[in-house]
Amino acid sequence: MSHHNTGTYFDTSQTIELKVATAISFQVVNPHTKLLFVLNDSEGNEVEWWGATASANHLRRVGITNDLISSGDKITVKGYPSKTTDNLLFVTTVIFENGDYADFNYTAGGIFKSVTY
């Protein structure tokens, strides 16, 4: 969480990468921004995931707003898995189909072109 101690709730020692997911909704709000998406499991079933990340106030300052992700967008989601809850992660990065990516670090994050990734 942006204010909260991320390591208390998420395993910051490992980063998982979920691809390719389909976005359902992206809500930049306080105290935690929420990303809902679905991912196909190994048997082809759609599994709903959600991600928490920095607050609206922090993301606004690095140029991230609700417009970043739309329903239906194909995205790769990276982040720290929850210690307690299935299919939940703390989102650190979202990569788009064209290779551009959003870094949710609220001190140095932002939206970047793929060439720098």
Binding site: M1, Y9, Q27, V29, N30, P31, H32, T33, K34, W50, A52, S55, N57, R60, S82, T84, T85, L88
Partner: peptide, 15 residues
Amino acid sequence: IYEYECLPDFAGAGV
């Protein structure tokens, strides 16, 4: 200094 509205539905955030 921005408004900081906190939405309870998003506060627990799964934890």
